[in-house]
Design a binder for these strands. Sequence first.
RNA 1: GGGCGAGUAGCUCAAUCGGAUAGAGCACCGGCCUUCUAAGCCGGGGGUUGUGGGUUCGAUUCCCGCCUCGCCCA
Length: 673
Amino acid sequence: MYLKQQKALSSRLLAVLSELYQIAPDALAIEQPPEIKFGEYALPLAFELARKLRKAPRKIAEEIVAALGPVEGFAGFEVAGAGYINARLDRGAAAKAIAVDGEIALEGAGLHSLVEHTSINPNKAAHVGHLRNAILGDTFVRLLRAAGQKVDVQNYIDNTGVQVADIVVGLTHLEKLSLGDVQALMARLALEGRRIDYYCWDLYARVSQWYEADEAEKAARKKVRLDTLHAIEHGGNDTAAIAELISTAVLRRHLETMLRLDMEYDLLPRESEILHLHFWDLAFEQLKDKGVLYYETEGKNKGCWVMQRAGRTAEPLREEEALESEAANNGQAPDEDAKVIVRSNGTVTYVGKDIAYHLWKFGLLGRDFGYRRFFTYPDHQCWISAESGEPDHPNFGGAQAIYNVIDSRQADPQANVIQALRGLGYTEQAEHYTHFSYEMVALTPRCALDLGYEVSEEDQARPYIEVSGRKGFGVKADDLIDKLIEATRAEVDQRHPELSEEERGVIAKEIAVGALRYFMLKYTRNSVIAFDFKDALSFEGETGPYIQYAVVRTRSIFRKAETTAESALARMTDVDATPYLTGEENDGIWQVWLRAAKTSLLLDQCIATAEPAYLAKHAFQLAQEFSNFYRKHHILTEADPARKQFLLATAAVAQRELIRSLGWLGISAPEVM
RNA sequence: GGGCGAGUAGCUCAAUCGGAUAGAGCACCGGCCUUCUAAGCCGGGGGUUGUGGGUUCGAUUCCCGCCUCGCCCA
């Protein structure tokens, strides 16, 4: 409703501007007033026009208001302050519309997009940083789907990289295991109910130390690492077989961990196939043909295929810049800042392989993966890349828009890939390539000490300490989830001894997931999360459980009223809500309706800015306004039957929008809690 | 050395394209459970938005300098 009325207002205003001043701006700024007494929409446009028209803003605002006339759904317009135009909705009519209208209807419906998230190196357990990535990605997928887009969810697996090589070195050189021994080890771990990813967590930390431990052996050990990496990349040997075995087992564990938080994937593209299916060769041809890559014959990058770095535009430099640059470069000197794509020894860098992979994502490579079934969810299938796959598989790749959920440290390589696409002439694709960047999750020094890690004095003085898989320093995802469930379970046991063991377990899990997902979503993306158990295990205030609790309250009302939210909304057609919504004394109730009406607007904003935190905030604010309303207006004891109907509808609309918003955040609302 | 991000209440964070009295949560203090679930509600204190300039009707927001922290590249 809110978005629809905003558009109606906008188009009426454009007509008025054209009529009065013969101007046609591209877009009008429509704001939400800071206080309800200013109405529902605020228009600062008179300020902008003041200079152009050489008139006082207030005068312009008055002229516009006079020319507006009645607009359907609006109660009126007024000039406020130095020249704001405030628009007021007809509250009664709005409430009726909100009751029947779920809205949405956003641009971009039908678009085929691809979201890549999680992408954990399959060599150790997932930690809190990975959780932030996956929760952000999964939530964004839900948002895009809510807006009507067709979304493929991909989890890229670097199964032939240096991190997997490190684990293989650990198994073969520290543990001195053969391929057969590794198989036996995995069987034993499974039998003992131990998690392979946890085993690797410790082993990875040990290997990282082992490389550095002995100064005399350092070079030899680094060579072991490199040889192992090459053997894995090459494939067809025991080393590669061990890597395949262990990385696949760890990958399965990651999928299980993420499934605990209701996250599913459609496809797991792996680096091994990108290598073995020679994606790079095709990309290399395109890049050479279009002159994106050139062979450097001078300087430190001599013998490499390099690419001009993003930010260095091909546009001509301004004269003084050109002169300066020429002087500095002494005429013909090579671009030392260029990004190396193929090293002088012929190996391809990570960015090179990534360019090839992204050409595939947009359907521009001219080659496809094979696909095999890998992991079965209750209601759908997750596929994995393969050299030769099963004949019948869904189509992947060829997306119109892509989103890569990758932390902000990868901004530079991501920019290079976009630059390459642009250089190849794929401008449209480059425009629809979003590096969905986010900051890391770090631990507070307090948290690190609590976990028993040694923390230097220097680190203790910092606000946060970066998580490091290499040092085995961090909070494992499953440990955190276990801890959360334990805490919610204790609370549910105490509050609902009448429920069965199983019921209490389900509720505890729902609350734990709600707490964790909300915790990761309430921060905007470029804010570092300094993780602390105290905050993450909190169920009060701005948390998931607070919002879930508001829904539980509405459920309880409808149970006792022996009706449903749906029927309460359906009956709104017979209720004249105007008397219950008009006047300052009813602003609180109107706030609930108004906030509820904004869900689609928030969905739109979240997608446009790739920022799920706004929706998290919206759900919290709606829950707050409902809680306020709940305390103030006792529904079940309301004597006036018409007013009671209206109050029930208020609870119903709050419930509908809370459940919807929570659903997009990947959070369910229990029946009781 | 170059690039990116950040600096807002005691703490953790918001603040839409530059907009009306800079808002939440936590913590602290004081109230509210014989009425729909107190994982809640109400009230209170708490701010030179790192710093110095500039742009203008108006700056947490934009521009320039400086300081501090983090990350990336070399």
